[in-house]
Amino acid sequence: MKNIFKDALTGAAVFGVVFLMLGAFGGFAGCTSFTLEGRAEAAYGTYSIAQGAGAALIQTQGIPDDVKAKIQQASAASKPFGDALYAAILEYRKDPHTANGLDQALAAAQAAISNLDQTTKESATVSGVVP
């Protein structure tokens, strides 16, 4: 019984750290005083961590299938935008004249990344992983 509480507390603490990070990245991505490249990196960081949190939730037993299905949908919907953002960051590094393309990729990706981020947070809360 003691181990169950320990595992639950450890899981909740780690998820808490993950969601604190997501909050920090969201703040960076929306910070207009940051450079365009910095905001794009922060958005991609949010995307990467939200995908990781989603994968951890998908593998966690006891989370309802409908919640996992929502994570799967949000993950699949955000992947093309995440990939496009990554490609745009690399392109911008090679040629800074492509700033407009990076700006557009960032604007296009923000809604899908925000949806994935929100879905993982809600899924963790709904399923009791994070109190």
Partner: peptide, 17 residues
Amino acid sequence: EAGLQLLGVVESGVATL
């Protein structure tokens, strides 16, 4: 496995931050 995955997420997040 889920715990290891999360630790990877935390590690990646710390590096990015």
